[in-house]
């Protein structure tokens, strides 16, 4: 424990002094705030003369303004925070020749990885929490609505989800920093994994589903329905390997209790029409949590898999200073 704490402290100092990290964090906070305030301003107009609809506050985070919603934005670019925090965690020490010194101190080797991971998670938590707080503050001013207890809980769960999601990428990046000796290679590998898992696995999922369980155009409704369900099931299984899909589905469930479909929706027209077109009753918070829990567990599980591989590679690795 002692070793973890010492390394953690140093890593935190490094992160706060790292221009690279500060730049990406500033960029993400800035864009996130801009997106949310654009949404807030357009809602301002629509809310005029309308009785307060349910969960209007959460719409700040989920509704797509001109481009995309805040949650979609974090789903896309959030991983970059994790990658930037982790891609050179271990191989930086290797190229700086400090690693052989570090592992010859009386600390367990996993303490090095754990401390670096924890420091990264702390940074992620700081960035995400301040982002959510800034947007909430702006939202209160822009739309003049104070979030209810239910909404605050949902936001908190969203925050935890986002931290888990970005932490997965941190874990993956640390894994690459253990496997690859050069920092440039591990940065490229992390980016490649990010692009692959975020953009192609979703597509690949539907291709695979169509190949394995094609949808049928038959007159028999029962058969067609079954084929459709099978197809969807294959897609879901594949997408469970894609953190971005997991994250997207989970956030839309938790932040949008009125939603009918797990796909993202677009805020069009007045809010009244919007709520008419959807279920009248929102999903209770507890039910939302029940739905989201498996997504969270999947996110944690894939992070742990990264760690398992990390330990396997690093624990017995020979460490030379050349």
């Amino acid at each position: 424990m002692h070793g973890i704490f010492t390394i953690y402290r140093k890593e935190m100092e490094d992160h706060f002094g790292s221009i690279r990290f500060l730049l990406i964090a500033a960029l993400i906070v800035m864009v996130g705030v801009i997106i949310a305030s654009m949404v807030g301003m357009s809602m301002q107009d629509e809310l005029k003369g309308v009785a307060k609809p349910n969960f209007v506050f959460l719409l700040l985070f989920t509704s797509t303004g001109k481009l995309f919603s805040f949650t979609q934005f974090i789903g896309f670019l959030g991983p970059l925070i994790g990658i930037i925090l982790g891609f050179d965690a271990v191989n930086r020490e290797r190229t700086g020749r400090t690693l052989s010194k570090l592992v010859s101190q009386p600390i367990y080797r996993d303490a090095i990885i754990n401390a670096k991971f924890l420091a990264g998670v702390t940074m992620i938590a700081i960035v995400m929490a301040s982002l959510v707080l800034i947007i909430s503050g702006l939202g209160i001013r822009l739309i003049g609505v104070v979030p209810g207890a239910d909404e605050v809980w949902r936001l908190l769960i969203y925050l935890v989800l986002s931290i888990l999601y970005i932490s997965f990428w941190l874990g993956a990046a640390i894994l690459f920093s253990v496997v690859f000796r050069s920092t440039a290679t591990s940065a490229l590998a992390s980016l490649a994994a990010w692009i692959f898992l975020s953009f192609f696995v979703g597509l690949g999922g539907s291709f695979l589903a169509d190949a394995v369980a094609p949808m049928q155009q038959t007159a028999d409704v029962a058969q067609a329905t079954e084929a459709f369900i099978n197809n969807d099931r294959v897609q879901r299984i594949v997408s469970f390997l894609a953190p971005a899909t997991l994250y997207g589905d989970a956030t839309s469930t938790i932040l949008d209790p009125l939603r009918k479909t797990p796909r993202s929706f677009i805020l069009m027209g007045p809010l009244e029409r919007l709520s008419l077109s959807r279920f009248q009753n929102p999903l209770p918070l507890v039910q939302s949590i029940v739905i989201v829990a498996p997504f969270m567990i999947s996110l944690i599980a894939i992070t742990f898999i990264c760690f398992g591989i990390c330990y396997m590679v690093f624990m017995r690795q020979e460490i030379r200073s050349t």
Binding site: S100, K101, T322
Partner: peptide
């Protein structure tokens, strides 16, 4: 232990 090419946090 003093490694062959010792490095420091520069």
């Amino acid at each position: 232990y003093l490694p062959e090419n010792v490095g420091f946090y520069e």
